[in-house]
Structures are given as C-alpha cells and as structure tokens.
C-alpha cells in the first residue's frame, strides 16, 4: 500500500502551518521528513494518520493494506506513550485486545513482536523499570503487533541520549532489512535521515512547503560503513536547511 499526499494546506486558526505539500510514500520505503522546528512536520504526520483533517488537499491510500493488517497506519511516538500500569507485554497486548483474536493468538503475537525487538526477557517488566531506549523498543514492538502497512514515526529517537539513539538506529536498520516495513519518519536529526531514508523530504520554515525531495540510492545495509559519503549527503541537506533554520530560529515563538 502506498500513501499519496496531494496539495496539503493546513491552518491552526488563522496560522498557516502547511502549504501545498505534495509527495508519496511507496511501500517498503522509509521516507524521512526534515525541516526547521515549527515547520509542521509533526502536523503532517498527524494528517497522514488521520488524527487531524487537512484544510485543503487530500491524503490517499493507494491499494489495499496487506492482508491481516489490524491498523494500517500506526504511530510511534517521541514520548513512547506507554501505559505505566501495564507491563511491556501488557502494553503490546493493549492494542490487540479490541480485535477479534483468541487469547492464544494474542499471546503468540505479543511473544513474536517482543522477540523481534529483542524484548522477550522484559515481557513482564513495568515501563518505569525500563530505560528510554527499551521503552521505545516496547513502543515499536507494539506498533509491529498490529501489522501496520505504514509506520508513522514522530521523532522516535529524540527523547533518547546519543548512545542509545545510535544503538536503536542500528536496530531499526536491521529491522527494516528483515521486515521491509514502510515508514514515514519525522526527525530534525540529519544523521538519522541519511541513515534511514530512501527519500528525504525537506520542508521550509512555516508555513511548511517542500524545499526539495532528496533520493538516497545507497542500500540501507551499506550505509553504516559509508559514513564519508553519507556525510556529503548530510552536508547537502544542511545547506538546504541552514538558512531556513536560521530564519525560523529568529522568529518569535508566539504569533
């Protein structure tokens, strides 16, 4: 299943946050969305998942989601959004409980996704006992449990320290290599974008418009060992963003 955005314009009250945004997310691809803070990246993600309705334009699903997908458009949040009163397994189970699955099917799925995110031994642990990186792994496991057609990831690594971020980034790459999931990945971190993105959509400052869409052809598995080339890509992206970021930084926060 592909996603297609056509002429998306959005307002918060009188404030225009997105203007005429137009791009697609093809199945099996990771599309990274970058842009200066306040450019409407997260808003775009909320529109994609149907949590908000765009003022103008349309968002289309092309083709049917894969069979057995319980929640085609599934979020991974920056703050993990785990229920503190449920264990890791319980948090995964939560999103399955509204679906017509037998108790056994459910526990099989939970065990499966926890294994895939290397969390099996933490199944019965409460969130407060987990590090930030482990919490985000649980959140990713929860997202995988509903077999999404497209993951909508809102700065999933931003709340983590840099070492944990590096570890989790490797995990995400590995996961993609195994599962070939589709994702729209919002970040303000250019290194993440060039490590994960097949396509990087650069937005301008508010109101967010598309500055450029950069395709990165290098296969994901090679990128870890090609840091020099990636550095080049990253510099190019930074050149694109630099002025926007500076201008955005000087804007008054409250309009």
């Amino acid at each position: 299943m592909d996603l297609r955005l056509r002429g998306i314009t959005h307002f918060y009250g009188d404030l225009e946050v997105l203007r005429d945004v137009d791009f697609g997310v093809e199945a099996g691809q990771i599309v990274c969305l970058i842009g200066p803070s306040g450019c409407g990246k997260s808003t775009l993600l909320r529109l994609l998942g149907g949590l908000e309705r765009p003022a103008h334009g349309e968002i289309l699903q092309l083709g049917a989601p894969p069979a057995g997908s319980l929640n085609p458009l599934t979020y991974v949040f920056q703050d993990f959004a785990l229920l503190p009163w449920r264990t890791a397994a319980g948090n995964v189970s939560l999103v399955l409980e509204d679906h017509p699955l037998s108790r056994r099917e459910r526990s099989e799925i939970v065990a499966d996704v926890l294994a895939r995110t290397k969390l099996s031994e933490f199944a019965q642990v409460l969130p407060r006992q987990l590090s930030g990186g482990m919490k985000q792994r649980v959140a990713i496991a929860r997202a995988l449990a509903v077999r999404p057609a497209c993951l909508l990831m809102d700065e999933p690594l931003s709340a983590l320290d840099s070492q944990t971020r590096e570890l989790l980034l490797d995990d995400l790459v590995e996961l993609w290599l195994r599962e070939r999931f589709t994702a729209c990945y919002v970040t303000h971190n250019l290194a993440e974008a060039v490590r994960l993105g097949h396509k990087v959509v650069v937005l301008s400052r508010r109101p967010g418009r598309i500055r450029e869409i950069v395709e990165i052809d290098m296969p994901l598995e090679q990128r870890k060992h090609a840091l020099a080339e990636l550095q080049e890509q990253q510099s190019r992206l930074w050149e694109l963003m630099r002025e926007e970021a500076m201008a955005a930084d000087r804007e008054l926060a409250d309009v």
């Binding site: 949590l51 319980l70 979020y75 959004a81 229920l83 939560l94 509204d98 929860r142």
Partner: peptide, 14 residues
C-alpha cells in the same frame, strides 16, 4: 496524559 489517549485513538481502540 492526553498523549496516551491519542495513542489509544491512533491504534483504533474503541
């Protein structure tokens, strides 16, 4: 936490 409620909605919980 409103984020938890939004999470529930995003997973299609009733």
């Amino acid at each position: 936490d409103r984020n938890l409620i939004r999470m529930g909605q995003s997973f299609g919980l009733s």
